[in-house]
Amino acid sequence: MKIVVIGGTGLIGSKLVEKLKADGHEAVPAAPNTGVNTLTGEGLAEVLRDAPVVVDVSNSPSFADDAAMEFFRVSTDNLLKAEAVAGATHHVALSVVGTERLQESGYFRAKQVQEDLIRESGMPYSIVHATQFFEFMKGIADLATEGDTVRLSSAGIQPVHSDDVAAAVGRTAVGPPVDGVVEVAGPEVFRLDELIRDTLAAQNDSRTVVTDPGAPYSGAPLEENTLLPGPGAHLAETRYTDWLARQS
């Protein structure tokens, strides 16, 4: 089966393309560096030809509020319209656990617009909600750093390995549309502040992590369960502690 992967040269996309090809599918990576631009529409008609499944794992190149909104709104609209013309029958998108609970963040408002456009399009769809990736823990610390101090909430977080996210998206892509959301998360629940404290220590990073209940996450306040999946989530096997030890 031909499956077009929008964002197919990025962290998740490249892993997804590899996994789909290993399973015998014709997985086609689509990104600006392959001649496909969802913002302008360049190359969309050609790459979507004869592809029943389209997977969107692309991300905004900027996390600024207006730029992220422009990217997800225009890109998703262009993609869905091109899919309808091409006769695609399953649109799969990667999004984030807790998106609907993080609407004080401009980035997550943009992700919500993306999801709403998909739901309202009439295209059979599946949205995969993943928790935060292992690989982005340092990025979380960097965003919360002032001087040598990292201020973070003690809210729960259940991070997941990017390999496991790619596998979950792949399973969803080759299955029937669910016309709803499926969730994937790692097997361990942590406190955000403790997780980052342990991560920085393992990386010999001297920054001090301070617990601050009011510290924002991507500009939004956190409640205890904001970043945690629901009870029906698929729990991946890779443990963060094992992964972190391998990085060190």
Rank of each mutant, 00 (worst) to 15 (best):
K111I: 12
K111Q: 08
K111F: 10
K111E: 02
Q112Y: 09
Q112H: 11
V113H: 05
Q114G: 08
Q114C: 01
Q114T: 06
E115S: 08
L117E: 06
R119V: 12
R119F: 02
E120G: 03
E120P: 00
S121C: 10
S121P: 09
S121F: 09
G122L: 10
M123S: 13
P124H: 11
S126G: 05
S126F: 07
I127A: 09
V128I: 12
H129L: 14
H129P: 02
A130N: 11
A130L: 06
A130R: 06
A130F: 06
A130G: 05
T131N: 03
T131V: 09
Q132R: 10
Q132L: 11
F133L: 03
F133Y: 15
F133D: 00
F133S: 00
F133N: 00
F134C: 00
E135Q: 15
E135I: 13
F136W: 09
M137G: 05
G139Y: 00
I140K: 05
I140E: 04
A141G: 15
A141P: 10
D142P: 00
D142F: 01
L143P: 00
T145L: 08
T145F: 05
G147Y: 02
D148F: 01
D148L: 08
D148T: 13
D148W: 03
V150Q: 02
R151K: 13
L152W: 00
L152G: 03
S154Y: 07
A155I: 02
A155E: 01
G156W: 04
G156A: 11
G156M: 07
G156K: 11
I157K: 04
Q158A: 08
Q158K: 08
